[in-house]
Each structure stands twice: as structure tokens, then as C-alpha cells.
Design a protein around this nucleic acid. Structure first.
Length: 429
RNA sequence: GCCGCGGUAGUCUAGCCCGGUUCUAGGAUGGGGGCCUGUCGAGCCCUUGACCCGGGUUCAAAUCCCGGCCGCGGCGCCA
């Protein structure tokens, strides 16, 4: 047994009791006749006192920052100590010594720039700020799952090695698969739709890959996608579901992630339901009024989204009813106006964080849409076949976890947020 | 991919524009040693260590010019 208690679990009621802590040496202070070790574990920081007359004094001379140690000692309630308690060491065991000097400061005294941080990433992730990010992300995923379970959804897993592109547009990473060419999946889209035709309501949290030449603070080549698909539903239904999910995520983080938000010195935006719905046609009118020469069918890029953010005075809103031509083949066109589709993006400031739609659920419509986009239906037979055997109307969306975390932490770069980012410039660590 | 900006001790930086003189480069933090028995990013003393790579201009290059490599931001592509 390496530890009897986590640091945060030891309160003044433990006064006089023997406990064992284990963790990392966060800071050392040597006052000659007395040393103070600030020890860090996953629950936070605690102070260890090593008296000159203690049997642990000798070994305490060898400690370096970030060394992993185990401390057995007696708890003292003392109002001079952080949190009113400290551990007086009787025995210290050095479990793993850290080399000095550290390549990056973990204590927070000296900042490091992002290149250094990503190079020395495991040390960087031990900083309090990054620990807070990791914990907030876990809370977000917990709330996401809990909300969906409550709504009757089932968590699934779909293939990540695929035979061809699913949507067109995005570039793929090829892999060699038993002598054949295959690709890393850019999305779970087609398989989650099929699974909605099996168990109706499904979600998946898994990586996806895009070989785009994007080089921005908000793009990754490998990203975690939070996907939802729902049978017997249309895009209005899944937008409402999304509102509920986001509301619960923010609520959970504000309630259970107080300490972490405090460390980040950030407050996530409130999710006001209903979230504003701006039609694509309304959006381009606003942009035209600001001098943008944008025509029906054009994408709304980052510069334009920045303008909309200013004009709308809204940080979180939907853009709905996108041109059909701008959306993938599986997106359903509106019956009353086939040039528009039952689709939406959720925008946070200038970032698209969610994309969703009502899907086509009839084979002949899918085939027509594929041909219209210059794609061969034969290439999608693995998908189309199942629409011969009863496929319900369905709708869904995909949300990028890292971009959601931009909203939840206030950190303005996904490469900082993701523990080991893979982008245009990075393949290690 | 295009454009712009940047690269100085382990880490973060001052100096660069107006080449030296004040630079055989200053500070902070860290590393090593010492003092300090209540510190709280401890304090004090001693010590330690650097101009990304190549070429050019010049009496002289951290500083100016060219190329390379790496990083950041904007755009394109795009979730």
C-alpha cells in the first residue's frame, strides 16, 4: 500500500493520526533547522514538515522537484499550514528521483512558451492549470454520457479503418491494410446512421482524422468527435437534444469543477435555452450589409463568423438551413425548398463546434444525391444496401471535443487543450 | 500552401531599430554550495550557464543582408 489517504482527504479531524501520502515534490523550502515539502497528488497540494531531528531529515536533503516520494508521518492540525493541516514526516521513501534541472517549471514560477510546453508535455500536464483542464474535460464527458443515457441512448463503437471517404471534402490519411489501401476514418457518420437503424438512439466518443493542411489554433489532424444519431427524429429534435446536453455539461462543470474553474480563472458561458437560430440566408444578408460580397451557396468562413459574432452580440447560436449543395449527400433537403437543407452548425464566437442535420433515409434519394455530387453510388454500396431493408428517418450531429473545451475553459488553442496534439507540425511526443 | 512576426543561459526574457564604445551579453527563475526552526511562488550570501544553422557585408556582427530549419499568428483548405 503506497498511500493511506489522498492529500485532500486529510482534514483537521485527523490530528495526531498516522497517515501515508504519496506524490510529487512540488516545491521545497529549506529553513535550515526545518524543511517544508509541498507535496502534490491528483487531489491537490499538501505540506510536509521535516524537522532537523527527524529520521527523515537525511533523505530530505536528496529530494529534487518532481521527485516521486512516499511520506509516512503524523498529521498536525496547525492554522499556520495551508488548509490547516500538515504532515510531520517520520519516514520518507524516494520512489523515483527527478533529474535536475527540470526542462520546464511545474510549480508555476516561470512560464514556458507553447513549443517548450509541448516538447516537455508530461511535465507541462502536471501543472495545476493543465490538471484543471483534464478534469473539466472528464466532467464534460461524464455529463454528455449521463444526459444521453437518460434520453435512452446507447454508446457504440464504429470502424476507424475504412475503405473510402464518407463525405468528400476533407482529405484522408491512407494506411496500408493487408496490402490494400485503406484510410483512417474522418467521421463515424455512415456507421452511426446504420446503427441508428439497429438500436435507434446511439452515441460515440472516439477519434477521427483529417489530412487537411489547416494550420490554426483550432485544427487538429487527430481529434475526438462526440457523435449522436437518433432514429424517428429530425434536425429540430436533435438541436433541442443538443441544447439539453450543453446545458447539463455547463451545469455539471460549474457545480463539480469549481476548484478547476478557479485555477483557470474562468467562467463558462451560460447556455440559454432556446439557443438563437439564425438562418443561413439571414446570415449572408448581415454579412452583405457589412460589405462582404458573399453569394448564396458560399461558405461562411472564420473572418465572416467573427463579424457575425460582433453583429449578433451572441457567443453561442445556431446557423440553420444551409444550402443543400454545401452539405454532404446524406443531408436531407427541405421539402418546401430543395435548395436548402435541414442542417445546422452551432457556432461559439467564431468557431463551428457542432454540425448536424436530418439525414436522407431512402435509397433512391441517397443515390441521386451522390450522383449530384459526382460520387459513385457503387462505392457506397456497403452503406446503401441497408436502406433496402427498412431504415427509419433519423437525424444527428457531431461535436469536436477540443473545440467544446475552448468554450468550457477559455483556452484559445486546441493544441494547448489536447494532451498530445497531432497537427500539421507535430507527431511527437 | 501563401503572407506576416519571431528564435538569446535548463526555463522566461533585456539588449537588436541607430554595428563597437557600456557586450569577453543584463535581469528573473532554476542548478550547485552555505546561512536561517514557521516557510507559504520563503528570505539572504557565494557560484554556475546563452546570442538556432550556413553564407555574405565590415577593421568589427547578438545587432545589417541572403538562404535554411523550427515556432507563433492571419488566410487558404477545413470539423
Amino acid at each position: 500500500m503506497y498511500r493511506s489517504h489522498f492529500i485532500a482527504d486529510v482534514t483537521p479531524e485527523y490530528d495526531g493520526k498516522e497517515v501515508i501520502w504519496a506524490g510529487w515534490v512540488h516545491l521545497l523550502r529549506d529553513l535550515g533547522g526545518k524543511k517544508f515539502i509541498i507535496l502534490r497528488d491528483k487531489t491537490g497540494l499538501g505540506q510536509v514538515v521535516v524537522d532537523k531531528n527527524s529520521s527523515a531529515f537525511g533523505i530530505s536533503q536528496e529530494l529534487t522537484q518532481e521527485s516521486v516520494i512516499q511520506v509516512r508521518g503524523i498529521v498536525k492540525a496547525d492554522k499556520r499550514a495551508p488548509r490547516g493541516i500538515e504532515l510531520h514526516a517520520e519516514e520518507i521513501t524516494l520512489l523515483s528521483k527527478a533529474k535536475a534541472p527540470l526542462p520546464l517549471d511545474v510549480s508555476g514560477k516561470v512560464k514556458a512558451d507553447i513549443d517548450t510546453r509541448l516538447r516537455e508535455r508530461v511535465l507541462d500536464l502536471r501543472r495545476q492549470e493543465m490538471q484543471a483542464v483534464i478534469k473539466i474535460q472528464s466532467l464534460a464527458l461524464k455529463a454528455f454520457r449521463e444526459t444521453l443515457y437518460k434520453e435512452g441512448f446507447i454508446e457504440i463503437f464504429t470502424p476507424k479503418i475504412i475503405a473510402s471517404a464518407t463525405e468528400g471534402g476533407a482529405q484522408l490519411f491512407p494506411v496500408i491494410y493487408f496490402g490494400k489501401e485503406a484510410f483512417l476514418a474522418q467521421s463515424p457518420q455512415l456507421y452511426k446512421e446504420l446503427m441508428a437503424g439497429v438500436v435507434e438512439r446511439v452515441f460515440e466518443v472516439a477519434p477521427a482524422w483529417r489530412a487537411e493542411e489547416s494550420d490554426t489554433p483550432f485544427h487538429l489532424a487527430e481529434f475526438i468527435s462526440m457523435d449522436v444519431e437518433m432514429a424517428f427524429a429530425d434536425y429540430n429534435d436533435v438541436m433541442q437534444l443538443l441544447e439539453k446536453i450543453l446545458h447539463n455539461i455547463v451545469k455539471t462543470i460549474k457545480e463539480e469543477g469549481k476548484e478547476e474553474l478557479k485555477i483557470l480563472n474562468y467562467e463558462p458561458p451560460e447556455v440559454k435555452i432556446p439557443i438563437k437560430r439564425l438562418k443561413y440566408t439571414e446570415a449572408i444578408e448581415i454579412l452583405r450589409s457589412k460589405g462582404y460580397n458573399i453569394k448564396f451557396g458560399d461558405d461562411i468562413g472564420t473572418p465572416e463568423l467573427r463579424i457575425l459574432n460582433e453583429e449578433l452580440k451572441e457567443d453561442l447560436y445556431f446557423i440553420v438551413d444551409w444550402p443543400s449543395d454545401a452539405r454532404p449527400f446524406y443531408t436531407k433537403s427541405k421539402s418546401e425548398n430543395p435548395e436548402l437543407s435541414e442542417s445546422f452548425d452551432l457556432i461559439y464566437k467564431f468557431l463551428e463546434i457542432v454540425s448536424g442535420s436530418t439525414r436522407n433515409h431512402k435509397r433512391e434519394v441517397l443515390e441521386e444525391a451522390l450522383k449530384k455530387k459526382g460520387l459513385k453510388p457503387e462505392s457506397f454500396e456497403f452503406f446503401l444496401k441497408w436502406f433496402d431493408y427498412g431504415m427509419p428517418p433519423h437525424a444527428g450531429f457531431g461535436m469536436g471535443l477540443a473545440r467544446l473545451m475552448v468554450m468550457l475553459t477559455g483556452i484559445q488553442s486546441v493544441k494547448e487543450i489536447v494532451p498530445f496534439p497531432r497537427d500539421k507540425k507535430r507527431l511527437t511526443p
